[in-house]
Design a protein around this nucleic acid. Structure first.
Lengths: 267, 267
DNA sequence: TACATATGTCTTTTGTAAGAGACAAATTGC
DNA sequence: GCAATTTGTCTCTTACAAAAGACATATGTA
């Protein structure tokens, strides 16, 4: 079977995830990798590069790409031998939005919030154990704090991450957080226990503030959106300069909390 | 979807093209059918029903659904045994929008147009040989003319359809239009030659108006968006009451044309 | 209470799709 | 000009995924 994979052998309990690529992968898996790869590149990619990128045989990649293009999930990009996401995915995505009150209203609230405050605002969710920026609206500051929609960031780097994990057991949290996730961009290393303590605090206070975690210049304020009592379904957050005054920060947190509460299912 | 329409084009060396569902279908095909099925239902579906809906074995369906849910393309809906589109599809869809100037700006223009005119406005494109409403913005009229985004309508029923086919040869048009497509909702039957003549007219005049085609109460005004000289990439259209005056119609057509021109690639 | 119909999981079989590799035709670069 | 690389298509083999079906619960309904 999995002969000599460099990674440590796992107890069979784990649904051992992300293998970069194996021999004779299932077609569907290859497709999932292709989509994920295009999501990370954020641009049209040549089929050859795509094959390299997902570590799949060229012949297989050609076949799959053709099928996906025929189905409309992918489209050939302008010059002719590059592919990117297709209209079908856009349509399915809109279906998702339509069927999802929280997302639809959340997008609206986020847009409002960033317009009112002038700060970058985001709607965040847990996406199969990963922190995901589902929608973001840039502030009006000259230095835009960029964070693309769909970006996946380690949970411990964010204020939202602390809130999103509020309902989980320690074991579940350990599963979702890898060793690497605890290392901040500047090299500092969080202790897992500290992180878990932060989560408890966030749960208790009903909001979370982190300073200078992903970068040295910003503070992140987050408030939870509940889908049921105690169940954090999403968070709204604001990204503000790290030197924002105490008073102003408090004001923003209050605003944020009230908006997030609006989105929550009453209960 | 390209399923068992009796009149599938046999131009290419189709080995054994698509049947509604054969035995031992490829997993990827099953997935494509599942997605398309969910798109038509527009709601969460039980796995059993899903299996019936796409005419796939239950065991296979369970397996595929689990994989898709794990991947985030589908999500289990609230009550527990229903599935619908997942966040990943939304994210990919947003990627598509981001990488597609025309769509991004087109959505904007459509929203503006319907706000300014009070009429329902739509952005339409050809989606693998099918007419597709890519974005629509409802007007302010009490009787909303509903037409969901992503809805697929036979090309001959629409004004946009006549413009979208402007660049194609007769043979290509015949391939895209089935006999059934020529039968209007009220039972009337268009002649293919008339339709093709309409297309030529639309191409020549640079816009198209149809009255009482899909229903007896509305008129549809459409203008082309060009991605290159002569190449119609999309259309913008307005849906107005059928008794809208000549003068008002002319006004709206002029507005529509100018907005569509804005979207076109200059050239 | 039985009786029927759905849900979810597993095991076994076999038809076939994924992959290796050869090939011609473009596209590069020197 | 001639190599070196990349692109797109095609053929053949076999590892393995799709399907059938048995099984153990639910859920419904007469």
């Amino acid at each position: 079977m999995q002969d000599g994979n460099a990674l440590a052998a796992r107890l069979d309990t784990g649904p051992d995830e992300d293998r970069t690529a194996g021999s004779r992968e299932k077609g569907l898996n290859r497709v999932l990798h292709i989509l994920e790869f295009l999501h990370t590149t954020q641009r049209a990619v040549g089929i050859g590069d795509l094959a390299k990128g997902v570590n799949a045989p060229r012949s297989t990649t050609y076949t799959l790409v053709r099928e996906l293009v025929d189905a409309g999930l992918l489209e050939m990009a302008g010059d002719g031998n590059r592919v990117y996401f297709g209209k079908k995915l856009y349509l399915y995505g809109m279906d998702y939005v339509r069927g999802n009150d929280l997302l639809r209203r959340g997008r609206q609230e986020v847009d409002n919030l960033s317009r009112e405050t002038g700060e970058t605002s985001e709607l965040c969710m847990l996406q199969s154990g990963r922190y995901t920026i589902v929608h973001s609206s840039p502030g009006t500051r000259p230095f835009r704090i960029s964070s693309a929609t769909g970006l996946q960031i380690p949970l411990p780097w964010t204020a939202s991450g602390r809130l999103l994990l509020a309902g989980f057991e320690r074991a579940a949290i350990e599963d979702m957080v890898s060793e690497d996730d605890l290392v901040l961009p500047d090299g500092r290393r969080l202790r897992l226990d500290d992180f878990i303590a932060d989560i408890a605090t966030a749960k208790a206070t009903g909001h979370c503030i982190t300073s200078g975690l992903v970068d040295a210049y910003t503070k992140c304020l987050a408030a939870p959106v509940f889908s049921a009592p105690g169940k954090v379904e999403a968070t709204m957050c604001l990204v503000v300069p790290i030197d924002t005054s105490e008073a102003k920060t408090g004001e923003l947190i209050a605003l944020l909390r009230s908006r997030a509460a609006r989105l929550s299912i009453p209960g």
